[in-house]
Structures are given as C-alpha cells and as structure tokens.
C-alpha cells in the first residue's frame, strides 16, 4: 500500500484558496507519522477545473508537495461535487494513495463524503489534530467535546479544520502533470453564482474579524462594524442570531453551522456567546467582547471584556483607533 497523500485543491477558477495550504500542512503531519515516523510518502495535489495554468503554478509552490495532478476540462468550468468526487475516486481507486484530504469548507465538505461513498469508505470530518497516520481528533457537539477517532480502513478520506493547521510555506517547486478526466456518475447544471463582492479580506483567513450579534438590532447598524473592520484591515462576521434575524447574509455566519475562524483578533459585538457561536471562534488568538449584559457567556472566553452599550463603545473604539 502506497503511503502517498492526495490533497484536493480548492479554488474559484481564478485563484487557489488559502485553505488548501493549511490542508497541505495537515497532510505533512500525516506523512511524518507514516511508517513509525519515517515519512516515506509523497504529497500530491489534485486540481479539477478549466484553464488551470495559473492555479497549478500556485499549487506547485506549496512546500512539501512533489506533484500536481491537473484535470483540466471545459466541462469542469464550474465543477459540481459529483465532478470533483469522481476525480478523487479515480485517483484513489488503484491504491495509489493512503489518504485524501480537503479543507472543511462548503467545497470540501461536499466532495469528500461523496468520494468516500463512491469508494465505499467512511470519511472523517473536520479534523483539528493528527494523532497518528490513522487517528485524528475532531470537535463534536459544537466543540463541547473532542473525539479521538481511528480509521480502520484505507484509503482514509478527511476534511481538515484549516484554522487548526498553519499554512504550508510557498517555496516549493512541484512537477505539474495532466491527468485524464474521469466520468462523473451524474451531472448537475450550473446556472449562476451570486457572490458577495467585498473588498474586505475573506472571513476564514482574515487576521482580524469584527462580528455582530442580535444586539446590533438591525442590518443598517452593521455599517458601524464594517467601518471598524476597515480600520483594522479585517473581515465582518455575525452570529447565527444576527443571520436568522436577517441583519446580514448567511456567508457572514461564524459558528457550528457556519464558518470556523481563528484570527489574531476577534471582536464580538453584541454577541451573547451561545456555545454554537463559540464553536466557530474560540480558537482565536485574542478575543474582545463588547456587551451590555454583565452575565453574557461571551465574557467567560474573552481576553478583554468591556461591559458597555455597543452603540457607545463601538464609536468610542473607532475614535480611539483613528487618533
């Protein structure tokens, strides 16, 4: 059985998503634990789409990666889960890989279980730690518990909590090879994307995140947080309560059922701190909470707690930062 590891690249047709590099790092940790730490296996990246030349170059720079397998086909201009899963399944089918990993994004969470089922394997989701080459730690119950789980089969298919792994360096020089396209079992028709066009950094990789909760009262008030985020070079997030109330779109959501972030600075404004929200941000380096409720659970995890009305505190903070 080969000890090679396959990482599935995530991209939008123009750029490689940074979570791919964190996933490469997780693959590196698995490789280092193969064969009693011998690290015999190589790490390859699988890239599926159309006109992938530039993205393949970005992949080739990922440190520790030796080969990029490119499936470049016009019919994969907007690849569906079925399309990518079929390529993963074809690549893994011959026993060429011991593991396949993708970021635990909406992309990876869709393609990895699909590919696993095509291969009759049980995938393991959202790993935050590699214990052994076949044993992983992952959060369950919204991070209320950490499960150590061992795979009893091969190949092992995984999604990776990217915030738990530092991104791989970009000084590598992997070979780029074209691979034949495998036929997906079924296809879906892409109609269109309606993507949020923000100049701000992407939420899951931003260094600073300013999030608002139900305390913001309405969507208009989020302008205050946007201004603060822009001053700090950060992204804007929200609790599920704020999304449910219709203040902001779902892609802002941080938490168990939304995105997982771990920025240097997480500013929680008007967020009470339900466990489901903490699940998505408690690994942030520094947490600041602004809330007028002395008893808000968010204060139990915050490094700096400021009990104050947010409509007083946020403008004051903005003013102080602009001094």
């Amino acid at each position: 059985m080969s000890a090679n590891i396959l990482v599935i690249a995530e991209h939008d047709g123009a750029e490689l998503y940074p979570g791919t590099l964190n996933t490469v790092a997780a693959a590196g940790e698995i490789a280092a634990r193969h064969d009693g730490g011998g690290g015999a296996g190589e790490i390859h990246i699988l890239l599926v789409g159309e006109n992938l030349g530039e993205i393949a170059k970005s992949c080739a720079k990922a440190a520790g990666v030796t080969k990029i397998l490119v499936v470049d086909d016009a019919k994969f201009a907007h690849p569906g889960a079925e399309d990518v899963a079929a390529q993963i399944s074809a690549a893994l089918g011959g026993g060429a890989y011991s593991h396949a990993l993708a970021p635990a994004s909406t992309f990876g969470k869709a393609v990895i279980p699909y590919a696993a089922a095509l291969l009759d394997r049980q995938a393991i989701s959202d790993i935050s730690e590699v214990s052994e080459a076949d044993t992983f730690v992952r959060p369950i119950y919204a991070g209320n518990a950490m499960e150590t789980v061992k795979s009893l089969e091969s190949p092992v298919l995984l999604t990776v909590r990217t915030t738990a792994f530092e991104p791989a360096a970009q000084d590598g020089n992997a070979a780029v090879e074209n691979a034949a396209a495998a036929e997906p079992p079924v296809r879906v028709k892409f109609i269109e994307h309606a993507l949020s066009s923000s100049e701000r950094p992407e939420l899951t990789s931003a260094r600073v995140v300013v999030s608002g909760g139900r305390g913001m009262q309405n969507g208009e008030n989020f302008a205050m947080l946007e201004k603060l985020a822009d001053k700090l070079g950060g992204a804007v997030g929200a609790s599920r309560a704020a999304v449910d109330a219709g203040f902001v779109p779902n892609e802002y959501q941080v938490g168990q059922t939304g995105k997982v972030v771990a920025p240097d600075l997480y500013l929680a404004v008007g967020i009470s701190g339900a466990i489901q929200h903490l699940a998505g941000m408690k690994d942030s380096k520094c947490i600041v909470a602004i809330n007028n409720d002395e008893e808000a659970p968010i204060f139990q995890v915050a490094d700096y707690s400021w009990c104050e009305d947010l409509f007083t505190a946020v403008p004051a903070l903005q003013g102080e930062l602009e001094k």
Binding site: A145, K150, W306, G319
Partner: peptide, 27 residues
C-alpha cells in the same frame, strides 16, 4: 464499523481574561 472512537474528552478550556472600562484602555 469503519472507525473506532478511542476517546471523547472535554475541549481545552479558555480562561476568562480581564475587564476593561474604556476605549483607550482596550486599544
């Protein structure tokens, strides 16, 4: 069974930090 759960543990606790009372102090 394709997987075996070896252990379920409490997550590492994050300790509460300090209180601040103004924007100047926080910054």
């Amino acid at each position: 069974a394709r997987t075996e759960v070896l252990k379920v543990a409490e997550p590492p606790a994050r300790e509460a930090g300090v209180r601040v009372s103004g924007a100047g102090e926080l910054v």
